[in-house]
Design a protein around this nucleic acid. Structure first.
Lengths: 261, 261
DNA sequence: TGGAGAATTCCACTATAAAGGAATAATTTT
DNA sequence: AAAATTATTCCTTTATAGTGGAATTCTCCA
């Protein structure tokens, strides 16, 4: 009785590639292995399509079977692709040793952050003592105004462009209050002026976040170096932390420019 | 009428998903950014298809533009997917701290290795002092007989199965000489017996490779822990290195079993 | 052991994506 | 500056990939 009749007009088929990418994203966001049927139901995608696509993705190693109940999750090929990405990406390749250096000199967690669309993300992180620790925060998207880096990454935009760029809801802070846009823009301007910004973390109430800009050839802030420190440490070593970070960001900026020739 | 004149070969169209994966693989194998046209020519794929697929892959972040000449390379999304893979994969998650421990105790490079199809690959690596170093060897496929691990990973197969499994050409060593199959199988048997194998590296002539097996519930060797040491060090500390590695592999095996319940 | 329910595979149909090639844009060469 | 070459986009055609639904297989529990 249904068919495509009625007003729903075009019965569109999803493109295999896009659906496949959605499957990988869906598995990643769930952070656990799922069976094809669960994927299909969870994504509201046709079962037969999901079965076929999952089969293909498994055959090339993008997905992997993880148990005998048919559950699948991201595959090893993605690990290798991810490594290749890092290896080739100037910014991360150059930033990694700097992060290590920053952490060595401050004993605090350091990060390389960037925009991803209209959101903020952590691209690289180096935690205190633990080497090679993989934090679940990496790659997660946060509203730009929630972050110290978010004062630097939009510094080259006009007021209007900034307002346009950031989704309105992103001015709602983690605690539910709404950040005044003019107040936010004022902080962007002063951060841009200082090539530096720091404030108490919004994510918790015992850390302080430092951020310094990394510029591309044209002077646009393409990423930031950040330091996350307990408030107490941040206060005691404020000058040191700020200097270390600023110095590193300048160094990264210039090695980027050198490398691009 | 017949569906297809049998004489005229089937003019087959590649599936978008598969071609997209091939594109990513192609970029990765080249280890550098390429323009769509170069990809199309290099892969012998239709230009229009490559342009469209590259566009889609860029729009979702699987690929990234890297310059103003239209060159693209692997994208940040792959980095995040790769991290999620590691995070979820019991073996790597459990192995990472062990590798760090091994390297801390020996000051040598340690690795977690596995089979990928009928080839050997390094899944994780921890280099001497450098933390988070990304080696280009990771993920690269090598002939099984070239490696110490290659004596352990096939231990549960019969002689015939081993011969069938390994491509004939893979018995040709890096220096061009051919390894005798019976000799190889003998080394597999003794390695299996000892749950250990070590020999001078074939890749260069100043390192010695140690390998110890990690077993799954059914006792099959699913991966190996390896140590790469300068010959001199390897000789002086042979007993220590062997013990550290064996101990770690036993620990990893048992934590895998514990974790799977 | 059988039968209900869930998971997976199979199959036929058509909306559509891949490919070929023409048109246009961007470079480079003359 | 024009011509030649190379790169990219646009457009049309048709082979086929994605679907819905049926058939089959698997899994439990009575």
């Amino acid at each position: 009785m249904d068919k495509q009749a009625s007003s729903t007009g075009p019965k569109s088929r999803a493109r295999g590639l896009e659906r496949a990418i959605a499957i990988v994203d869906y598995l990643q966001s769930g952070k656990e292995a799922k069976r094809p049927i669960d994927i299909a139901l969870g994504m509201q995608a046709p079962k037969s399509s999901v079965y076929e696509l999952v089969g293909i993705l498994i055959s090339v190693g993008v997905l992997e079977r993880v148990d005998n109940e048919g559950r699948v999750y991201l595959g090893r090929k993605l690990h290798y692709w991810g490594l290749s990405y890092l290896e080739n990406f100037d910014l991360t390749r150059l930033a990694q040793p700097l992060l290590e250096d920053i952490t060595a000199r401050t004993r605090e967690t350091s990060q390389l952050c960037m925009l991803d669309g209209d959101k903020y993300t952590v691209v690289l992180m180096n935690e205190g003592n633990r080497q090679f620790r993989i934090s679940s925060d990496m790659g997660e998207k946060l509203p730009i105004p929630w972050t110290a880096s978010g004062r630097l990454l939009l510094g080259h935009y006009t007021d209007d462009e900034i307002i346009d760029f950031i989704p309105d809801d992103d001015f709602i802070m983690p605690d539910g209050t709404r950040l005044d846009k003019h107040e936010y823009i004022a902080s962007v301007r002063s951060a841009h002026q200082d090539s530096f910004f720091s404030f108490d973390s919004l994510a918790d109430n015992y850390t302080h976040c430092f951020a310094a800009p990394v510029h591309d050839e044209s002077g646009i802030c393409i990423s930031t170096l950040c330091l996350i420190a307990p408030k107490q440490d941040a206060e005691t070593h404020y000058r040191l932390y700020r200097d270390v970070l600023t110095e590193s960001s300048i160094q990264l900026t210039s090695s980027l420019q050198a490398g691009s020739c």
